[in-house]
């Protein structure tokens, strides 16, 4: 049982990890991330890479939606902007991949700023609908700006290369994507120890009070859109490299809903929530595939069943979590932790 956690300074109060135990757990987590490739096979590494990309993207959306309270249904389209930037640079300029990724993040940030403009005028549901419109307009650009995106034919991307090692397989790609993911998540966690992050939370909790406190709503809302788009751009760029080819169908509205669902299931407004949600939502389809495989002797056409079942489970997860566990997996995690903190007493 943990007794008291006296904090004697603001620095201690703001610290990411309050106790030494948490540092130990964090070190263990990092160590297991390093060891993971040595004990698993390509399939699990593939999933790990996909999860990492989704964690980056979901964390970005969480900053915008969970922490700033601005719902966005255009997140996948922003990822698309990042992915197309990488694809174009990869095919037309001989720049190294890290420059491409940064460029993707930069371009996406600019697009995100423009798409965030409606947030100065409307909020809540209207904003969500405006981002749907932004998403469709971007989709249109992906399809019809043939000279850059090659339209519906899609575009291929060469795998990235570091110091002569070609990252064309999950087992090599892992070493690039996971460190980026860890850095991005830590950056997000630290963001909320700064003035900017606190301002985001204030805007979410009550925008009028926030503006009375001297927070410029337009500036900070746009900043939140910019940061979220930055994350989406990085995630999109990594996605393009990871998949090796992209087309306009790669970033449908459903994918935006996927990320929104991920942060709802994980828990909005906590960094842990974005991570847990992305892991959970990425692995659920795999579990379903396994389940359909198991059931395949009893149903005909198991292949045709999988996609609708996924859609149903996906919707049921959104509805179920919103109805029964609105704070998501992060809250469940917190309850489990509290049980052990207070053990042997009841919570």
């Amino acid at each position: 049982m943990r007794i008291g956690s006296a904090k004697e300074s603001y620095i201690a109060d703001e610290a990411l990890f309050a106790t030494r135990t948490q540092w130990v757990w964090f070190a263990l987590l990092l160590a297991s991330l390093v060891l993971f490739p040595f004990v698993s096979n390509l399939y699990w590494l593939y999933l790990a890479c996909l999860v990492s990309i989704n964690v980056i993207s979901a964390t970005g959306l969480n900053i915008l939606t969970g922490f700033t309270g601005q719902v966005s249904l255009g997140h996948a389209a922003f990822m698309g902007v990042g992915a197309y930037t990488v694809a174009w640079l990869d095919n037309n300029a001989q720049t190294p991949f890290y420059l491409n990724l940064l460029a993707a993040a930069g371009v996406t940030t600019a697009v995100g700023l423009v798409a965030g403009l409606p947030s100065l005028r409307v909020k809540g549901l209207y904003l969500a609908i405006a981002t749907i419109a932004a998403s469709f307009i971007l989709q249109f650009v992906f399809i019809n700006w043939e000279s850059v995106t090659r339209g519906t034919r899609g575009i291929n991307i060469e795998p990235p290369e570091i110091m002569g090692i070609v990252l064309d397989n999950p087992d090599t790609f892992y070493w690039m994507v996971v460190p980026i993911m860890v850095v991005m998540v830590l950056l997000a966690a630290n963001l909320f120890r700064t003035r900017v992050g606190r301002a985001f939370i204030a805007i979410r909790d009550r925008d009028i009070s926030a503006s009375v406190l001297g927070i410029s709503l337009p500036a900070y809302k746009l900043m939140s859109f910019a940061i979220a788009s930055f994350y989406a751009g990085i995630a999109g760029g990594l996605y393009a490299y990871f998949m090796g080819s992209i087309n306009p169908e790669s970033f449908p509205l459903l994918m935006s809903i996927f990320f929104l669902a991920a942060i709802i299931v994980g828990g909005m407004g906590t960094i842990l929530g974005g991570i847990l949600g992305a892991i959970f939502m990425t692995l659920t389809p795999e579990v379903l595939r396994y389940g359909v495989d198991l059931a395949s002797p009893f149903i005909d056409e198991p292949g045709a069943v999988l996609s609708p079942v996924r859609t149903i489970v996906f919707g049921a997860l959104i509805v179920g979590f919103l109805l029964f566990e609105p704070h998501g997996l992060a809250e469940i995690w917190r309850r489990i932790r509290r049980f052990f903190h207070l053990w042997p007493f009841r919570t």
Partner: peptide, 24 residues
């Protein structure tokens, strides 16, 4: 009485369930 955004998201989830059921 919940946050309107949550209710909005619930209807998105419902839509997803209905589409999936029809496809099934």
């Amino acid at each position: 009485g919940e946050n309107p955004i949550s209710v909005f998201m619930v209807t998105i989830g419902l839509g997803s369930i209905l589409v999936g059921t029809v496809e099934l």
